[in-house]
Simulated assay, not measured.
Amino acid sequence: MGRMSDEPARWTRATVYPDMWVDPADDPRDGASPDGELATLLDFLSGYRMTLRMKCEGLDAEQLARRSVPPSTMSLLGLLRHLAEAERDWFNWISDDDPLPKLYGERDGDFDGAVGEQAAVDAAYADLEREQAATDAALAEHPDLGERLRKDGIAVRELMVHRIEEYARHCGHADLLRECIDGRVGQ
């Protein structure tokens, strides 16, 4: 007789490699690597953004808002909100206009306000898409990776790498959060 536990069993829909999220042949992130530094950076950013979305697929609002382990306020929904906030912050780094206000108010509002309601989930996805598009459009005006922007003189290359790092780090968190929810493991 099996042991009763509140912990989800490890699960994956992969059939060729059971420890992977999806079979390699079905992975939408795979493809030929692009030529050139800017294209490579954009490809990595796109891949990590897609990975984060994949980690959130198929979950309801309550599951997306589920906290990891106390006292952490981290959740998948919180990560979506946090990355929307980060995209706005990066936009502010390169904009010559007055900085846009924080999306979620006070410090940690992105995680603290991640509640298990469908309206909060829909808003988080919309916020993330809008902020990504704004930052992407602003950076598209600066294709020279060595160009330094605004008074702080941040190089476009540094900003791109920082964005990739932020998404990559949080995709690692998303792996663990998702495994706690339903046992699906990352790749």
Rank of each mutant, 00 (worst) to 15 (best):
Y167C: 03
L38H: 05
A134N: 06
V156Q: 09
D112C: 07
E7L: 13
P70L: 13
A9Y: 10
L103Y: 04
A32K: 13
R29G: 12
D35T: 12
L42N: 11
D122C: 05
R53V: 04
P28R: 01
V161A: 10
D96R: 00
A14H: 07
H82A: 01
Q132M: 03
E87Y: 01
D27E: 12
A155W: 11
R53F: 05
L52A: 10
R53W: 04
M74Y: 03
D127H: 11
P28F: 08
R88E: 01
G186D: 04
L177I: 04
A174H: 06
G113P: 13
R107D: 05
M50G: 06
A140N: 11
E62G: 07
L176W: 07
W90A: 04
R150N: 14
R169M: 02
P143V: 15
A134C: 03
M50S: 07
G172C: 11
T15S: 12
L77P: 01
D19H: 10
I164L: 13
G2S: 15
C56G: 05
Q118M: 04
E141C: 12
L83F: 06
A32V: 12
A174Q: 02
I181Q: 01
D152S: 14
M160C: 13
L45F: 04
Y125S: 01
D89N: 15
E87W: 03
D60C: 06
K55C: 05
A123D: 04
A119E: 13
L38K: 14
I94W: 01
A25K: 13
P101S: 02
E165P: 02
P28D: 06
E129A: 15
D127Y: 13
V16M: 06
R148I: 06
D98V: 03
G105V: 02
L41N: 06
I181A: 00
V69N: 06
L41V: 07
S33E: 15
G186T: 08
L100G: 00
D96S: 15
R169W: 10
R157E: 09
G109Q: 02
Y125V: 01
E165A: 05
F91M: 00
V121C: 00
D6G: 14
L42Y: 08
A140C: 13
S5V: 09
M160D: 03
L176G: 10
A124P: 01
R81G: 01
R10I: 07
P70W: 06
F91V: 00
A155C: 05
S46A: 14
R53I: 07
G113W: 03
D23Y: 04
D60E: 11
I94L: 07
L128G: 00
E106R: 10
R150D: 13
S33G: 10
V161C: 11
